[in-house]
Structures are given as structure tokens and as C-alpha cells.
Design a protein around this nucleic acid. Structure first.
Lengths: 248, 248
DNA sequence: TTAATAGTGTCTCTGAGACACTATGTG
DNA sequence: CACATAGTGTCTCAGAGACACTATTAA
């Protein structure tokens, strides 16, 4: 993207450039890994082992290395701390309040990632655990979101991570109708009812069955597999898969 | 937001924390200041006086200082380099490709800002100039956007600033229907036709007059001022103003 | 008077919600 | 068989587009 400078002036400038002249902030990525558990949104959290905010639950995160892109840093964190690879991963927002971390100036680029339910989820690997989320607002109002700990008690998250989770849900609600975020939370084949459950959980409200079904089939993104559910105690639903978007 | 640590453990940790242990990237903000000129979107660009990429046109930008928030850094850059204050300003996306700046690792938080046309715009203050934008894609497809220089020739922007402008337009198109970005590009009073011009320019396509008018009036955000245009060579249109959003 | 745009009334078409009805599995 | 959920057909209603018509100013 950036061409190597061939202009002698540019070369001379770069050779004389002192990268250490100014004080610099630390830059981290924090990744909200989200899935569905028991018809609720849930996020993977890690209990902090060290100060600051020792023992509080937090999103998996880590420092951005000098030679890696932000996307690569987020993927690395997801792989190292949650043992999750090759999933939907998208940049969310950058948090840079001067005192958000008491150690030093830390600017954090927040990401979110989506995985289908029970897809080899590390149930409690390395101190990481899934917690359901409680969304205290409707629509795309926004605002911080608490995770729900033992006995349905809200969990106080570290730093500004509750704000990050709030932005994740706001983004999910906004993108649901025109992006594939709904399918990222489902196995490769699924019923229309399961898709509707995903939408209802993300939106936090019930949807009309008939028009949901029509709307989804009209997108042209659903392909019948020809197979059906089995052993469900009622008429089995047809199984669909999501087909890649048409590039016309 | 972050409480001052009172726990002795936390204090001891912080006192012993060496902020210089790791190599850190530089963090900058780049601000796309956008307005409408002659029914086209336009951005304020600055010609780079120093390498790297000397003489190329670029978005106003600057390093984030240790004690200021990202929003404050963006507002400061806007004030210092474009002499613009108290305008709509929103974070866009963070660009962090490892070699996007040849000097050193630079992570840039991109912002965009909106001003009404000809509102005391610095026409060419301090080397800054307005350039119209050419959007080469429809809808919210996305992709880099060139500025248009002399004789309608596309201008090669510095660094990844064409991608930033692309994201600005994508964001504007996405938010137009449910946020106030349209009104930010208009004077305090305006006609419905002027509002439609703004929407058509942002969307890059013509809109149906009747339904646009109905849709806008139905939002409840438009208040008639009781006054009308004057000296327009045809029936003068009623002037409206945008009323603040209802919080119910 | 004419040109030009503002603004209104009304018809049609499309898509969502509502609801009744049929289909097909398990026990 | 009963029961539960899947899936279909059809009516109604609301909003967008289309279009014809009227209103009001400058030149």
C-alpha cells in the first residue's frame, strides 16, 4: 500500500528520523468473543491474575506487537487466550480515555468475534469462562452491559469492558438485517426456527414468524439441504444452509 | 470510570510498574472534515510539507498527546489545522497496518467531521484546501475514494487516506436514515429541497420527491420556522429547522 | 403571461403482520 | 389417536412510488 521511497529526499529524512523523540502510549486489543448459550448472548471472560483490577473479569486482550496488524493481534489474542481460530472477527471501536488504565496511557482497539454455540468452546480453559449478558436497553439505545455471574448477580467488569460489550450488542443489532452476523452464531445447517431464535436473542424482542420466514427466504441466502431434523417430538423442520453472497 | 486503587497490592504494583519495558507504536488521529460544495461531497486536505510522502495531499492529522483523549486529539487537530470548532465529530475506524507509515509503526485513529457549506470555511488557510470527492461505488459497497484535483484529475492521497474517505462515505450512507448527519451539512434553517439535495448527494442517487417529503415530515424532527425563501425566481419554499431528538 | 419550483391529493403496488388452516413427526 | 411444531394461503394495513394538479413567486 505504501510504496518504498525512492526519492533521495525521502530516504535522507527517514534515515535521520528519531522514532523515540515523543512519548508514546501503549496499544492493546481487547476481543469480545460472543456466542449463544440457552437463548442468551454470552461472552468469554478471563479473571485477571495481576493488578491492576486483580480478580476482576475482563475481555481477553493483549499488547499489539510492532510487526503485526491490529487484525492479526486480535486473532492472536483469540487463539492464545480462548483457543479459537478462523471465526468471524471485526474491529469495533477504539477506547482511549487518558486514565482508563492506571499503569500508563493505554489505548485499546476493541474487537468482537462470533462463534456458533457449543462449537468446541473452551468451557473453562486457562481461567476463561462464559457468562451470559444482560442488555438493559432496547433497540440501539446503547450503554454498558454487565455480564451475569453466579446466582444471576451482575459481574463488575475490569476497565471499560462493559462499554465494549454494550457496543458489541449495538453493532450486532445494527448489522443483523444486512450482514451475516446471524449465521455466524449458528452451525452450518440449521432450521428457520433456530435462525429466528438467534435474531430474537440479539434484538431482545420477539419477531413475527410468518414475515420472518418470508423475509429470510426472500434474501436468497438460504439453501435447503433437503434434509430434516430427527427425533424432535413433533413435525421435523427442514434444514437450511447459508450460501455465500452473490457478487453481481 | 476507573477508580483510584486503594488496595495496597494494586498500589505496590503500580509503583513498581515500568512503562518503558515494551516497544510502543506511535498513535495519531486523522480527521476527514467533510462538507458539500456544488452538490458534491468535499473534504479538506493539506499538502504535506515534509517527508514521508512530501507534497502529497492528506487529511489533517497529528499525534495523540499523553494526557488527552482521542476525541480531544481529533478536536485539537481540527481546530489547529482547519480552524474549525464545535462541529459534529465522530470516531470512524482505526488503521494499523505495520508499514502504513515508513517512519515507524504508526497506528491512526480516523475521525470524520461535518460542517455546513460555506460556514466560514478556511478556503485556503495554511495550505489547506477543499477538494470534491468522487465515489466510484454504489450503495454501501465501500472502497477507497479519490479526491478530485485540478481539471477533474484524481488526486493521489498520502498513506491510506483514500480508504479513510471511503469509510466516511460508507458511514454517512449508513447513518443517513437514522442519525442527524444530514442536518449537520445544512445551515440552521433550510428548505425540504435542500435537505433532499443533501441526501441525494450523500447517497449518490436521486430520490422520489413526494415520499422523501412525507418521510422527513413524519420523523417529527422538522419544525416550520414560519418563514420562506426570498428572491429565488419561483415560488419560495418554507424554511424548516431541525428540532432536538425526543427522549421519551 | 410565462417559467420554474413548492406543495397537495390520490391511486397503486409491495411488504409486514395477523390468522386460519394443513402437514407430519413422536408418544 | 392426541399433541406439538412446521409450513402455507390469504386478508388487511401502512408506507413508497407515481402522477396529476394547484400555488406562488420573479422576470
Amino acid at each position: 500500500m505504501i510504496p518504498t521511497p525512492t526519492d533521495p529526499d525521502e530516504r535522507a529524512f527517514l534515515d535521520g528520523y528519531d522514532a523515540e523523540r515523543f512519548q508514546r502510549p501503549s496499544v492493546t486489543v481487547d476481543v469480545a468473543l460472543v456466542t449463544l448459550i440457552d437463548r442468551r448472548l454470552a461472552a468469554l471472560l478471563i479473571q485477571r491474575a495481576e493488578p491492576p483490577q486483580k480478580n476482576r473479569w475482563s475481555l481477553p486482550g493483549g499488547f499489539v506487537r510492532m510487526e503485526e496488524s491490529l487484525d492479526a493481534a486480535a486473532a492472536r489474542v483469540l487463539s492464545a487466550k480462548a483457543d479459537v481460530r478462523d471465526v468471524f472477527l471485526e474491529q469495533l471501536f477504539t477506547f482511549g480515555a487518558p486514565r482508563r488504565d492506571p499503569r500508563t496511557r493505554v489505548i485499546s482497539v476493541a474487537y468482537y468475534a462470533l462463534v456458533p454455540p457449543r462449537a468446541s468452546l473452551p468451557e473453562s480453559s486457562g481461567g476463561a469462562r462464559w457468562f451470559p449478558l444482560e442488555v438493559p436497553w432496547e433497540g440501539e439505545a446503547g450503554g454498558p452491559i454487565d455480564a451475569i455471574g453466579e446466582k444471576e448477580k451482575p459481574l463488575r467488569l475490569a476497565f471499560d469492558h462493559a462499554e465494549m460489550l454494550g457496543l458489541v450488542v449495538k453493532r450486532l443489532r445494527g448489522k443483523l438485517d444486512y450482514a451475516d452476523v446471524g449465521y455466524e452464531l449458528l452451525p452450518t445447517t440449521f432450521t428457520l426456527r433456530a435462525l429466528q431464535d438467534v435474531h430474537e436473542t440479539i434484538l431482545g424482542r420477539e419477531l413475527n414468524k410468518d414475515s420472518f420466514r418470508r423475509r429470510m427466504l426472500a434474501t436468497g441466502r438460504l439453501e435447503p439441504t433437503g434434509r430434516r431434523q430427527a427425533g424432535v417430538g413433533h413435525r421435523p423442520a427442514a434444514l437450511y444452509r447459508c450460501v455465500p453472497r452473490e457478487f453481481s
